[in-house]
């Protein structure tokens, strides 16, 4: 666990860089983390995923990819296109949540 300042906001992150307190998250934090993850711009579709994850998250963990596609109506292809190279981790990081705990 360590402290980090993201978009001017002091937040706590674990060893893998995931935020540990979802309450510290703001939209500006999400935009800044997204940039670090190689996403220069967050579109409405990105926000749809992020909002879904934050509103359905239990215990501060991100939902699984299948939960996201089922819940948002996005296809797997669309989700992988929005968050390329590892959507499970990327979505969780940007949404200020922990890694998903399920397998699908």
């Amino acid at each position: 666990m360590s402290n980090k300042v993201i978009a001017g906001v002091p937040v706590q992150v674990n060893a893998e860089g995931f935020m540990t307190n979802p309450a510290e998250w703001t939209k500006d934090v999400a935009i800044e983390i997204a940039r670090e993850e190689g996403l220069p711009e967050l579109t409405d579709a990105h926000w749809k995923v992020i909002d879904f994850c934050r509103s359905t998250s239990e215990d501060g963990k991100s939902p699984t990819l299948r939960t996201i596609t089922n819940g948002t109506g996005l296809t797997t292809k669309e989700l992988f296109a929005l968050f390329p190279k590892g959507p499970a981790k990327k979505v969780a990081k940007i949404a200020g949540l922990g890694k998903p705990e399920g397998c699908v």
């Binding site: 190279k85 590892g86 959507p87 499970a88 981790k89 990327k90 397998c103 699908v104």
Partner: peptide, 12 residues
């Protein structure tokens, strides 16, 4: 299937 899906989710 399970491991492959997990790998894709992690960018592998």
């Amino acid at each position: 299937l399970v491991m492959g899906w997990a790998a894709l989710g992690n960018g592998i």
